[in-house]
Design a protein around this nucleic acid. Structure first.
Lengths: 207, 207
DNA sequence: GCGAAAGTTTGCCGGAGCTGAAAGTTCTAC
DNA sequence: GTAGAACTTTCAGCTCCGGCAAACTTTCGC
C-alpha cells in the first residue's frame, strides 16, 4: 500500500530502522497522551515498541525527544528552501515562504502533529524541548539571514528575526492544536506573519 | 553596606535561606563556568556551598535551575509593572516599558548576569531552560495582554506578542553577553523593540 | 528566659534516566 | 554463501532526583 517501487534504493535495514523509530515515537506519544509524562517510563515505551530500553536510547537521547524531536529532516529542508528564496524577497517574507513546505508536510501528518501539540500543551515541561529541537535550526537560520540581508553575522537583526520567527511559529502550532486543527495551519501562520510585518499593532477589539 | 534598617521584618531564618540559595547558585555558576556543565555534579556544587546534596534539591528541582531559574522574583515584578502601565499605551510599548525595572536590576547585578549568559551560551543545553524559566511568565503575560487590548483570551494576538517579546528579550540578553556588556542592556532592548514595532524590515547593509 | 511549634537540614534509600563495553543477531555486499 | 558491517541486547554502573523520618535550628507564646 505504501510501497513505492520507484524508491528501491532504501534497503530493508533502513526501512526497519524507520519502523522502529516510528514505533517508538508513536508508542511514546500514545502512552503519554493517556497517562501523562511522569507516569510513563522509557521501559514501558520500549516494551510497547517491542525493543529493549537500550535500543530506545540508540534512537533518542532522552525520553522527551521521542515526543518532540522526531522530525529533524524537516528543519534541514526548511533551511534549504530558505536559501533558495530569491534574494530580493525581504527576509521576513522569505522565512514565511520557506515554511510553506514544512507546513504542508505537517498537515499531511496531521493527526500525529495535533496529538504531539496536545501532549506538549498538557505537559508544559515539554515546551522547552520544542525550543531545544529548534535551537540548531535557528542558529543556522541566523547565518543564512545575515547573508541574505548583507550584514555581518553578529548584527542584531538576523538573530532577532530567527528567534522571533521561531517563537511565532511555536505559538501558531499551539494555537492550531488548541483549535483542534479547525483552521488550516497555513492560514494561522499567515495571520501571525502579517501581524509581525505590521509591527504587532494592537488588534481592534470586537465592537 | 547593603543593610536597609527599614527592612527588618525579614527574620534570621529567611536571610539564611536566601544565603544558602545564593551560595548554591553562585557555586553552580562558578564551577560550570570553569569546567562545563557535564563536568560538574550536584554533589560538587553542594560541597562548594557547604550543604548536603539533599539540601540542594530542597532549593532547586534540578541542576540546571540553579544556573538559570534563580530569579523568580523578577518576573513577578515585571508582571505587576505591566499591569500598571496606563491602558492607552499600545501593548508592545507597554511590554517594553514594564521591562525597564527588570533591566535595571539586571544591570545592578551585572557581573552575575553576564556570567550566567556566558555559561548558557557555552552550554546550549541550558538555552531551553531559559525558556522554561519564562514559560509561566509568558502565560500570565498573555492573560494580561488579552485584558489590556480587550480581546478574548484565546485570540492569537496576546499569545503571539508574549512569545515574541520573550524571544526578543532572550536574543538581546545573549547579544548583551556576547559583547561583554559593552552596550547597555537597555539600549539593546530599545533597538530590538524598535525593530519589532517597525515590522522587522530588512536593515540597510553597510554601504 | 523557656518550652513548644514550626521550619530546615540531613542521611538513607530506591526508582528512573542515560552511557559504555562486549556479546549476539540480522542484513548487505562481494 | 560467506565475511564483515550494522544493529540490538544484556549487563554493569553512574548521576539525578524525590520520599521519608530523625536531628537540629529558629521563632513564638507565655
Amino acid at each position: 500500500m505504501t510501497a513505492h517501487p520507484a524508491v528501491q534504493t532504501v534497503g530493508l535495514r533502513d526501512r526497519k530502522k524507520q519502523q522502529t523509530r516510528d514505533a517508538l515515537a508513536t508508542a511514546a506519544l500514545r502512552l503519554v497522551a493517556e497517562r501523562g509524562l511522569e507516569q510513563v517510563t522509557v521501559e514501558e515505551i520500549s516494551a510497547a515498541a517491542d525493543v529493549s530500553s537500550r535500543t530506545f536510547f540508540n534512537y533518542f537521547p532522552c525520553k522527551d525527544d521521542a515526543l518532540v524531536a522526531d522530525h529533524s529532516v524537516d528543519s534541514a529542508r526548511f533551511l534549504t528552501r530558505l536559501a533558495q528564496v530569491p534574494p530580493e524577497v525581504p527576509a521576513l517574507a522569505a522565512v514565511r515562504s520557506a515554511l510553506g513546505e514544512m507546513i504542508d508536510r505537517m498537515q499531511a501528518d496531521r493527526e500525529r502533529w495535533l496529538l504531539r501539540m496536545v501532549v506538549i500543551e498538557r505537559n508544559p515541561a515539554l515546551l522547552p524541548r520544542l525550543v531545544a529541537a529548534g535551537v540548531e535550526t535557528e542558529r543556522t537560520m541566523t547565518e543564512l539571514l545575515a547573508d541574505r540581508v548583507g550584514v555581518p553575522p553578529d548584527h542584531h537583526f538576523p538573530a532577532l528575526l530567527a528567534a522571533v520567527a521561531g517563537a511565532a511559529f511555536r505559538s501558531v502550532m499551539l494555537r492550531w492544536a488548541a483549535g483542534d486543527g479547525a483552521r488550516s495551519l497555513s492560514d494561522l501562520v499567515d495571520d501571525a506573519f502579517e501581524t509581525l510585518a505590521a509591527g504587532l499593532p494592537d488588534p481592534h477589539p470586537a465592537p
